[in-house]
């Protein structure tokens, strides 16, 4: 029976090196050749500065930018990434949603409550959701146009231009990347 332990120890060490070392090294090598930015994550630069990752949300709270979805940890993942994990009946959570609705109405004059899509006032699963649904972007157009002194049509045209279509044009939702949209907005003259 001692033989089984000896065999277990050796095969464990062999697989430890093979599956923990060699296989990931191979994947990292593939990523260096085929992955965006060499597998280091697709970054977006403005000038020399890294302003963000294409796939990772960052906070946009000011009126001149399209706002991101709320994040349970305010976009700083130093301690980890997570959702609010609030139960659907949690009274504190429901109060938070209500206050987000009220805040949104204060900043967006003339928007009807029934036009606010729920994703704009609920925290995303990762806390780093980089996207908005078309409706969540459209509902902010009037505010953006007013603050930036642009015509609403022009802002809407920009949102539509930035819209990412459904997968293969058929499956799943369409969405717009908030960081890319706001960068394009800054370039709009």
């Amino acid at each position: 029976m001692l033989l089984y332990f000896k065999q277990s120890v050796i095969i464990t060490l062999v697989l430890f090196v093979f599956l923990g070392g060699i296989y990931p090294l191979f994947v990292v090598g593939i990523a260096r050749v085929f992955g965006p930015n060499g597998g280091k994550g697709e970054i977006i630069k403005r000038g020399e500065k890294i302003v963000g990752f294409a796939n990772v949300a960052q906070p946009f709270t000011s009126d001149k930018y399209f706002n991101s979805r709320p994040s349970a940890f305010n976009f700083d993942a130093t301690n980890g990434s997570y959702g609010s994990n609030a139960g659907p009946s949690n009274p504190d959570y429901l109060a938070t949603v209500q206050s987000r609705i009220d805040t949104f109405l204060v900043h967006n004059h003339g928007v009807k409550k029934s036009d606010i899509p729920s994703e704009l006032v609920t925290a995303s699963g990762s806390g780093l959701d980089p996207h908005l649904s078309p409706e969540a972007a459209y509902v902010q157009i009037a505010r953006i146009a007013q603050v930036r002194k642009l015509s609403q049509d022009k802002v809407k045209a920009l949102v539509d231009e930035q819209m990412e279509d459904r997968f293969l044009g058929i499956f799943g939702p369409s969405q717009v990347n908030v960081l890319k949209l706001n960068l394009a907005l800054d370039n709009l003259k």
């Binding site: 990931p24 994947v27 990292v28 593939i30 990523a31 085929f34 992955g35 965006p36 060499g38 597998g39 280091k40 994550g41 697709e42 970054i43 500065k49 890294i50 302003v51 963000g52 990752f53 294409a54 796939n55 990772v56 960052q58 906070p59 946009f60 709270t61 000011s62 930018y65 976009f75 700083d76 993942a77 130093t78 990434s81 960081l179 706001n182 960068l183 800054d186």
Partner: peptide, 27 residues
Amino acid sequence: VINGMPATYEGKETIHTLEGATLPVYR
């Protein structure tokens, strides 16, 4: 990997957001 999932031994990156915050992005 082709779809943008990171595979690197490099540590976290620091980003300077459009609104002026400095945040870490883990990978």
